[in-house]
């Protein structure tokens, strides 16, 4: 059953220098009880997308078009009051930057109790406090009774992140948006948090959107993955296939850039070049200035999102069915390229 359906979502910011299109015609679907990973270059629009779903982007300089369908209701059309009933309750979010989203003037305990008191009618303060302390324990904060009374600045970076997680999990969430939820956490606590999320996912039949640059986390947590570049989806696929056989040249580059303990390389393999400036998007495929495989066509034309027979989607001319190579799947030039960066 589909829980969330995002259709043609476009988000633009008016700035002093012009209009920045941070998200460009984004569409994806998320079924109940399923996790979707969103990975992609820094600045590719991941956080902005999730803020739009939470309806936290509305201001005079922002233009949002498209549809965000949650349980059959377009969130973009709800009144602020109606949205308030959903936000923090059936849809909640773990924000990327704990320090900017936690209130420095309130104790952590108070901030965890707040959504419980707002959304769960009839619950007493005493019970809410008990629940908050239990949540602190669940996210692995030692001496939760004491930490309950502390302020965000008294906590370490990773503890603040876990406070955010506790707040997001306080209510009976159906959709959890986790924006880089474990970046500040070491592997052992990360494992504990991921485990907690998986448990809740099963128990509550919760869906998760997991935004992360840690491909290991995606591999462990998500059934499906979406790869973004400059505000667009460049690849959409079941997770296991992406790791076995990444399609888009950007995805391949991402997988190559991960440092591996087993290999002692002098330099990490970064994707050459930098992300284009949103105000000066390259012509054609926005990845072409950094793509080893770019052709004249890539410089002139924008590639559509090709749907492949196996259901995977990829935005790259290499997969244009009209130009199939010998094996009837990808073009020959591409195979050469692919072999050069992924020697067998």
């Amino acid at each position: 059953m589909t829980l969330l359906k995002v259709e043609d979502l476009t988000i633009q910011f008016k700035s002093r220098q012009g209009v920045v299109k941070a998200v460009d015609n984004l569409s994806f679907e998320l079924a109940k009880g399923i996790s979707l990973g969103i990975v992609g270059e820094s600045g590719s629009g991941k956080s902005v997308t999730s803020l739009a779903i939470m309806r936290l982007l509305q201001n005079a300089n922002t233009e949002i078009t498209g549809k965000i369908d949650f349980e059959g209701v377009d969130l973009l059309k709800l009144s602020p009051d109606e949205m308030r009933k959903i936000r923090g309750n059936s849809v909640s979010m773990i924000f990327q930057e704990p320090m900017t989203s936690l209130n420095p003037l309130h104790t952590c305990g108070k901030q965890i109790m707040e959504p419980i008191l707002i959304h769960q009618k009839g619950i007493s303060k005493q019970e809410a406090k008990k629940r908050a302390i239990e949540l602190l324990r669940l996210v692995g904060i030692p001496s939760p009774e004491q930490r309950f009374h502390e302020y965000p600045h008294q906590m370490s970076g990773g503890m603040r992140q876990r406070i955010m997680i506790a707040i997001a999990l306080a209510c009976d969430t159906k959709l959890l948006i986790a924006d880089e939820p474990t970046t500040a956490l070491d592997v052992t606590i990360q494992a504990q948090i991921l485990d907690l999320m998986s448990k809740l996912k099963k128990q509550r039949d919760m869906s998760i959107i997991m935004i992360t640059h840690d491909l290991g986390v995606v591999k462990e947590m998500c059934e499906n993955v979406v790869v973004m570049y400059t505000g667009q989806i460049v690849e959409k696929s079941p997770t296991d296939l992406v790791f076995k056989d990444p399609l888009h040249p950007y995805t391949k580059g991402l997988l190559n850039a991960i440092p591996k303990i087993s290999s002692k390389v002098e330099r990490l393999e970064a994707i050459p070049g930098t992300v284009p400036d949103a105000l000066r998007m390259p012509t054609g495929c926005s990845f072409h200035p950094r793509c080893k495989y770019a052709t004249e066509r890539c410089k002139a034309e924008k590639p559509p999102l090709y749907k492949r027979e196996d259901g995977r989607e990829v935005r790259c001319f290499i997969y244009d069915a009209g130009e199939k190579g010998d094996d009837g799947n990808v073009t020959n030039e591409y195979k050469e390229y692919s072999n050069s960066i992924n020697p067998k």
Partner: peptide, 18 residues
């Protein structure tokens, strides 16, 4: 450098480390 690259995606992480 206090977690200088943990907020970065792997490609930019690699650039920054280099």
């Amino acid at each position: 450098c206090d977690e200088p690259v943990s907020a970065l995606d792997v490609s930019i992480q690699a650039q920054v480390i280099n």
